[in-house]
Write a protein that binds this DNA or RNA. Structure first.
Ligand SMILES: [Zn+2]
Ligand SMILES: [Zn+2]
Ligand SMILES: [Zn+2]
Ligand SMILES: [Zn+2]
Lengths: 165, 165
DNA sequence: TCTTGGCATGTTATTTCATATCCTGTCTTG
DNA sequence: CAAGACAGGATATGAAATAACATGCCAAGA
């Protein structure tokens, strides 16, 4: 039971309800355009991740799904998450074994994350990992990169200001 | 104690027994120099990871520890791995929930990994994630990076040559 | 010396994360 | 109205990680 807190996330303030509505609408539009099926469960999972605006474990999502009247067995959440992740609506944070809604919907991108080790806030940004030393090493080794995971752990600005209090 | 000649990747052939022995000796020397305790279990885990020369899950290591006469409960492996990872002798591959011996012993470094999705081979190289777009984003956001996880998934040269055999 | 405290290890049990498998209902399409 | 694809519900199990407690060792300090 690691519930309870509602630590602010993203790193900046913003009009959250609008942000959620807009992202959901964008997802629906894209699914319609591409023939993807944004079913009730999938939509609900995306909505939950957008609303919470933080990384959630599959079982936390499952609890919320149950509260919303959906199935509450692990595969329900994992299947929805697989779909959403496969199409770029959400990302998995390997470091946390958790999922977060994408902050850059629509654009194909190679995401990078900044994860606060104190409050677990997660911010998404873009990365170009194959352009630097890693890309050079891959070419030299004959390795073909298909996907990259880039996750930076550290301290978010909010936590940096209140050192311990 | 640097292996100066070897390229920064692990997809190539090499004199493996020498490589294991040298790395173990280097680890022992460094522990002696820094007052770290490379106990039998810790040494064995490092030796196993060096010998297998691939990423191993904690429970796979545990099986090998059992065969070698050590304790066989999860904490035994996890504690040894924690020690080794904390001091940079091994790295955790988040993507695989597995551990691999460090290829650049001694030097402080920010590792990056290339992981073959077909054969699970892992090669370690250096990365400078904080120097590129990620670093810029972190500065802009006021995020203080302490550690980065960089893991590229793709196809290794060996698997690229045998398309499906 | 004795003892006390830190530390590594062993052991048991539990929690947390993820997948395999089977079955049912609902569309779609010929 | 079949036949097939696919989403989702349910049960069960596997895999990864940690909590909590107990024992033995050794070195500093009384
Ligand atoms: Zn994204
Ligand atoms: Zn924080
Ligand atoms: Zn390394
Ligand atoms: Zn391979």
């Amino acid at each position: 039971m690691s519930a309870g807190n509602a630590p602010p996330v993203g790193f900046e303030k913003h009009d959250h309800s609008a942000c959620v509505a807009q992202a959901l609408a964008a997802a629906e539009a894209r699914c319609a355009a591409e023939g993807l099926r944004l079913t009730p469960v999938r939509r609900k999972v995306l909505e939950l991740l957008l609303q919470k605006h933080r990384a959630l474990g599959a079982y936390a999502i499952l609890d919320l799904l149950r509260d919303a009247g959906f199935g509450s067995q692990p595969p329900v959440a994992y299947r929805a998450l697989d779909f959403l992740a496969e199409h770029g609506f959400v990302h998995k944070i390997e470091r946390l074994n958790a999922f977060v809604a994408c902050s850059h919907p629509g654009e194909t991108h190679s995401p990078a994350f900044m994860i606060c080790r104190l409050c677990d806030a997660v911010a998404e940004t873009q990365s170009t990992p194959a352009k630097g030393a890693l890309g050079a090493a891959a070419r030299a080794a004959g390795f073909h990169i298909e996907k990259t995971v880039v996750e930076a752990e550290g301290i978010c600005p909010a936590c940096a200001e209140k050192p311990k209090a």
